[in-house]
Design a protein around this nucleic acid. Sequence first.
DNA 1: AGCACGCCGACT
DNA 2: GTCGGCGTGCTC
Length: 720
Amino acid sequence: MSEAGASSRPEDRPEKSHPEEGPEQLALIRAAVRERALPRARPRTWRNAPLAERLPVARVLVDKGLIHLDRCFDYAVPAALDADARPGVRVRVRFGAGQREGRREGGGLVNGYVVERRADSDFTGVLAPLAQVLSPEPVLTPELLALCRAVADRCAGALADVVRLAIPPRMARAERASTPEPAPPPELPEPGGWTRYPHGAAFLTALAEGRVPRAVWSALPGPGWPAELATALATTLASGRGALAVLPDGRAAARVDEALTALLGAGHHVLLTADSGPEARYRRWLTLHRGAVRCVVGTRAAMFAPVRSLGLVALWDDGDPAHRDVHAPQPHARDVLLLRAAQQDAGLLLGGHAHSAEAARLVRGGWARPLAPARETLRTAAPLLRTVAEEDEARDEGARFARLPTLAWRALRDGLASGPVLVQVPRRGYAPRLACARCREPARCAGCRGPLVSVGEGEELRCGWCGTARADWHCEECGGPRLRAVVIGARRTAEELGRAFPGVPVRTSGRDHVLATVPDEPALVVSTPGAEPVAEGPGYAAVLLLDGWALLGRPDLRAGEEALRRWLNAAALARGREAGGVAVALAEPTLRPVQSLVRWDPAGHALRELADREALGFPPVSRMAAVTGPPEAVAGLLSVAELPSTADVLGPVPLPVPPAGRPRRTGEPPAGEQWDRVLVRVPPDEGGALAAALKTARAHRLTHREGPPAWVRMDPDDIG
DNA sequence: AGCACGCCGACT
DNA sequence: GTCGGCGTGCTC
């Protein structure tokens, strides 16, 4: 323990234990405490203090996320800090211009991490001393540093930015709390639901024997996957190694947490999600770091969790956009876990009901093995899948009233006879609905009564349900020819459906009001994609997918993949077809994602997507970077960037202004400004060179203040 | 990004 | 001879 880490800090003193004393006296006591305690804890300049005899230089990663400072700085180690200033600890150092020998200490104090202790420095000037060791906990381990470095390089970002994502802020109280003794590895669990997969047992055996299998897992529909994921984690633990699972949201993480607790009891894993407060979060992080617990289940920040001797990393539903971190440099959990599996020699499990093109590429290239159920197993586990064709108009009275095609209405009505029914509707504002500009009557399809949508600018008018082009629309109420955009969200849909089925309870689940579960009894459950509650018992009697045209009409490279992903995740909550489960999609049946849904063939869909993208030279068969910013910034950056000779520059094109209301993400234009975007594409093995070139160019322009800055994003998700 | 240094003109 | 404008470059 150093002086700086001494435990008698002023904030620990029980000040309230002197109730009889007046305020002046309290102030005096406080001052006395401060005088005694603070100089010991306060950072010092260490003028004329002796330096450490052995390895008197500390290489420090300074936590200032300036891209052109993406390197370490050497500091002298005062003898008094010698013992504590070990590699990995948090330190405070003076950093910045103005700190000169013989002058006032002007440089500001910044946080950093000791990366390495050295005998000497290649810096020719006189080294400033470390000001303070904040904590003797060596949080930035060599393993974590290597991972962060690789992630920063891949994302064209700064190391300090990635370390900030990887290590939670220090909470002194959490650090002081004692850590439990490491539990011995658990018993090898039974394979459970994995027997439903032809290669499931072999996958578990490989984990149990300490090998590093890599698999893309097509999970069977139904409620079994959290237990299966938990079994894979527990099997890895039984082999004496650690395991990590990243899930797209807190609800999914809670389900796996619950399954793991059911399997192993408490004490073998921790749950790491955003809603557990900074102190609890750091405490759990520390139990992993200190080796007391070897398994973590969590949302994307858990991808960096310091699990010891990692044997397996698992990622659920890798196509979910939540797996992309919103903070610079916006790494994707899939990329981080792939890097981590390679660096730390761990197995990999990419699971989900859907299949991303990236996952398909791993399988096609032989790097991962498919872990899929037999066709017959799938047939019984999945609901009966139907689509509503264009000519299926609402003929009977009830269907007209519900403004639904007959087939969809019957599925709802029949489903409600035996259990809950799920209706998936587009997110509010996702697909603006249209109404008469004069009388505000919603614009309806003359055939099936579905809402009209106009997808993209200048796109033709279509029915949002049956897809029929309705360019000749006139308002049925007042005859008006002009339209205006309105928003019909889950609540409005719920109201309309509720009127069509009087007496049936209606529950909604959406962005600000997400239900975890619904009971196994008749109810209409209206939900936006990703917020679908899990139905207790055997699952939903019927699932109705209403957002087909809105999803598929988006001018986005991933529109098809994303639509199928949302449908499969919702349809997976339905009962199997032998238990009467039905899922109905209102979408054009000839479209590829719709056909893949009906056949429940996510792997086939992803392979065909992959082939298409390969033909077009799109990710993941190439690596891409998006450069955005004011036109002169984008042009300026590209003019100084020494791109690989194979680079293919697409654009610039004006960037669409992000919808109002949604918080602006980095790299998006502020309101009222017109930004450009350029896409740069290279072959897969030159992605590193592309990232490095753009990072160098950005640093160059920042240091030389050559105009406004441009944003660089590697592997952008939202390319048209 | 800050922040100091430096080289220039206007002032006591 | 000194003060302070902001353009340039560095930060261990």
